[in-house]
Amino acid sequence: MRKLILLPAIVLLIASSALVNKPEEKATIKWLTLEEAYKLNQKNPKKIFVDVYTNWCGWCKRMDRDTFQDAKVAEFVNENFYAVKLNAESQDKISIGQDTTTSQMMARSMGVSGYPTIVYIKEDFKTIQAVPGYQKPDAFLDTLEKVLAWK
């Protein structure tokens, strides 16, 4: 009889500990295409940052994993910027206003020659600056705060 009473208690204990020790959800940046950011910017102007990457770039993958999934970074970006991913080697078409180009040509026009490179764009869609290289979360947040203050 005691075994029958203990079994439900053990099951309840295991189930409740699973709820308490629930793994944290990873922070995520709301990534957009350049076209989506452009359209959103027409209605609600914000600065834009473009993560220019390639599929073979190890530092790009590390920045995706370490920097862009940092909770503070994701929260700050989602509140203050439109975030765009741009594959510098892609031939995918991009249409901004009346202009059509490819992702590869857009990366070149932004002056990108190394990866990863973050390109910061003002609300009027003019480039502020391209910043090449991997950035740790704290350094990236510092840069984002400075860009946000840029007029």
Rank of each mutant, 00 (worst) to 15 (best):
V84G: 05
M110H: 05
S95I: 05
P8G: 02
A83H: 14
D92G: 01
D99H: 04
V84E: 03
E36A: 10
A9H: 10
K46W: 06
F125M: 13
D138T: 11
L7C: 07
W150A: 06
L12W: 07
E35F: 00
I94K: 02
T67G: 06
R108Y: 05
V119I: 14
G97E: 00
L7Y: 12
N41H: 05
E75R: 14
Y53I: 14
E24K: 14
L144E: 01
P137H: 01
L4S: 07
L19Q: 09
P116H: 08
Y115W: 11
C60M: 09
D138A: 13
S95P: 01
A71E: 13
V147R: 08
E89A: 06
D51Q: 06
V119T: 07
I121V: 15
E79K: 15
K26V: 13
K122E: 05
F140H: 00
I5P: 04
A9C: 13
F49I: 12
P116A: 01
V52W: 02
F76N: 05
S103V: 00
E123A: 14
S16F: 14
S109I: 03
E79S: 14
N87F: 01
W56A: 11
E36Q: 15
N80R: 14
E145I: 08
M105T: 15
K22C: 02
L12P: 08
K61C: 06
Q42T: 09
L12V: 14
K26I: 07
K46D: 05
Q91H: 07
S113P: 10
K126T: 15
F140C: 02
S16V: 13
Y115K: 15
L144N: 01
L148E: 02
K30V: 12
Q42M: 09
P116Q: 02
G133E: 00
D70Y: 04
T33E: 03
R108A: 11
E79Y: 06
K136I: 02
A15M: 13
S103N: 09
R2M: 10
Q98D: 03
K151L: 00
I121P: 15
K61A: 11
A37I: 02
S90G: 06
A130I: 10
L34S: 10
K126N: 13
K3T: 07
E145R: 15
Q98P: 07
S90W: 00
P45M: 00
W31H: 11
K126M: 04
R108D: 04
E24C: 04
S95D: 03
L34Y: 14
I48D: 00
R108F: 05
D51L: 07
I121F: 04
P132T: 03
E145S: 09
I118T: 11
Y134C: 10
L19N: 10
I10G: 07
N21F: 10
D124P: 09
D124H: 02
M63W: 04
L32C: 05
A107F: 04
Q69N: 15
C60L: 08
T28E: 10
